[in-house]
Design a binder for these strands. Sequence first.
DNA 1: CATGAATGAGCATTCATTCAT
DNA 2: GATGAATGAATGCTCATTCAT
Lengths: 209, 209, 209, 209
Amino acid sequence: MPKLAELGIQHGKRAMAKAANRRCILEAARVVFARIGFDAANIRDIIRETPLASGTFYNYFKSKEEVFEAIADDSLKRFRPLLQSVRENAEDLNSYLVGAYGAYFHFLANENAQAITDDAPHLALIGVRVDTPEMKTMFEEIHTDLQLVLMKMGYDQIDTDYLAAAAIGIAREMGDHMLQRRPPDADHAARIATQIIITSIEALAEEGI
Amino acid sequence: MPKLAELGIQHGKRAMAKAANRRCILEAARVVFARIGFDAANIRDIIRETPLASGTFYNYFKSKEEVFEAIADDSLKRFRPLLQSVRENAEDLNSYLVGAYGAYFHFLANENAQAITDDAPHLALIGVRVDTPEMKTMFEEIHTDLQLVLMKMGYDQIDTDYLAAAAIGIAREMGDHMLQRRPPDADHAARIATQIIITSIEALAEEGI
Amino acid sequence: MPKLAELGIQHGKRAMAKAANRRCILEAARVVFARIGFDAANIRDIIRETPLASGTFYNYFKSKEEVFEAIADDSLKRFRPLLQSVRENAEDLNSYLVGAYGAYFHFLANENAQAITDDAPHLALIGVRVDTPEMKTMFEEIHTDLQLVLMKMGYDQIDTDYLAAAAIGIAREMGDHMLQRRPPDADHAARIATQIIITSIEALAEEGI
Amino acid sequence: MPKLAELGIQHGKRAMAKAANRRCILEAARVVFARIGFDAANIRDIIRETPLASGTFYNYFKSKEEVFEAIADDSLKRFRPLLQSVRENAEDLNSYLVGAYGAYFHFLANENAQAITDDAPHLALIGVRVDTPEMKTMFEEIHTDLQLVLMKMGYDQIDTDYLAAAAIGIAREMGDHMLQRRPPDADHAARIATQIIITSIEALAEEGI
DNA sequence: CATGAATGAGCATTCATTCAT
DNA sequence: GATGAATGAATGCTCATTCAT
């Protein structure tokens, strides 16, 4: 029977503190990226949101890029089961899409609500569009999902990559517009987005493009 | 009768040189933004592409942001007639959309072809999406167009803002995927995107959402 | 008739200031290298000795190494005529050596006198031997000189490279010891060093090694 | 009768481990200094070459300087008997010098051979001359030896300190040049260096300087 | 108005040293 | 006494901005 340590699981105050610090930096980065965007953020911004010293950052990550990737990986771990549940409970493509779009739009509304209450000065500013690591993750997962489902449903004569891309693009852009509304109407947006995709599939299949 | 100068129109060598310098900086910025993206670009990058001195930049623009806006305004002036022609030659919504999507996808393919041959090292790298000023302009124009057309066509019971947003999102995301294909299939992409929107309008109108 | 500017010679206050700043940094670096050694010195140390701002350093040099090289080049320009004069006035090898060794030992005594009055905390400290750029220059010049002279004098059966190296080594090490003496006896040291080399040449030639 | 502990000699596992750790750090430092030089080396470089943790370093040494001194002391203990043997077997000054110079040049050739095969990137780069602790030790020992011998031989009218310094300088500089040769000719170098010193003694004595 | 050197705040990164475990 | 993570001062370097010429 292998020891826990051999499995990479550690105990003791030291190990606990390490894990806590890592999570602390990740959480700070998550907040900062959401607030001012990846490009505008710098390492000091991130570390300032933690009780740690600047040098400590480098004990955990080599660069801003690496934190970003770590958050994305992390998000993937948390998001995948959620999407899995949507998948399992979906009786058809329609309910899958409503579930997935709903998850995304609600996530966006929540994240942005927080960002606004904090201070969200110049997001969506000037032709630069920032995806948080979470968004990146979600999109990739859903894109893959959609392509698979469409293939399984026998729509192999249509350009599933483009269709999936369209589905993602719709989510992105409608999401931005939803955030302008007071209050954000996530469920309504999800229904519209779903409707667009569902209808298009039939039409594209008929046209054979 | 107002003097020309009062209208912002100037004559003489001085004025000519001024106008030329301004255009020179704009052109340089356009190239640089397309090459390395708005965020990565700095003022030195821009000025280095011109025969001017760094201080001169500040005689024309206060910041990188301001150049960006100026390029967008400039693009608008050049893009509007183009879209006007699409509008005038379009017999119906379908041909308008094919024209507009086609214009965008071809523009993207061309701009990107150049960027790749030059050197486009770290675009689309890490959840940051860069719109050139031209793209920003095009999107806003088309978004407005679409909303207007939908209203005129009597689809005022559907959420035209979301639909237009979806149309834009489709363009953005499909555009990214198109650029991965060899060769980029702009016309094909335009047909698909158009089909999606056209079909959706009917469906959304029926559903009344 | 070419303009001065075409020859790289510039006038005007701007150009004057530039040249002055460059010389200012060089002089500061010279002092700092002599005081605490090349390795211990950092760019802030250098810039602190000037009235300039830190960023200005990089307008003139890319790195500490580059300043070092520049000083060495500079020294070469000033030292070469000096050595040329020693060469021309020397009637024989003996007077050349006395002249060259004398130049070096006096240079060392002067430079060190200054360094001591400033503050020379830990030079010659711990197995690290710092050559100022001037010393490096002088040594290379003299090494070459000696090899040439020995060749010309027909001592081509002896290992002139080693002999020249020995002559340099003697200068270096005796120089260090001279600096411990109060007052430094530069002329005495020059006579001894010369004697050693002169005698050795005869002996080595006889032995044929 | 003093206890062993009072003499600094300890027993038990603890003490053994302590001694081993100390030697481990010393050995690592020796390697690192030889590889990249004293100045370029930092404590992390040293500790990385051991199985110990960074904090442990400070249980044994206060600084990089202190390790350097410790290595030098250590070297002295190992080098002194070697030189003692040279001394005892030497029939005259000539054979002593050949023995001592030979020891040094061979040591240098060996150490450098290893350093080159490992990686010695930027030694002797820019006017900085690095002595390993071993070299420092050797030089001090030989300098003392020579002064003593010269005094004993009745050459007290000559400047034995300068002469010894010259002897050391010759070793240093010729050593550098020897390392450029393929293969290094340690014995040849030792003969030349010896010849120079031997001849000089007579001449300086005659001249009375 | 153009120039381009000077400025200095700001950022990434390293590393000697400490100290709770 | 060993550990190794946390610390934060120190350093190299960049770059938007100013301003004398």
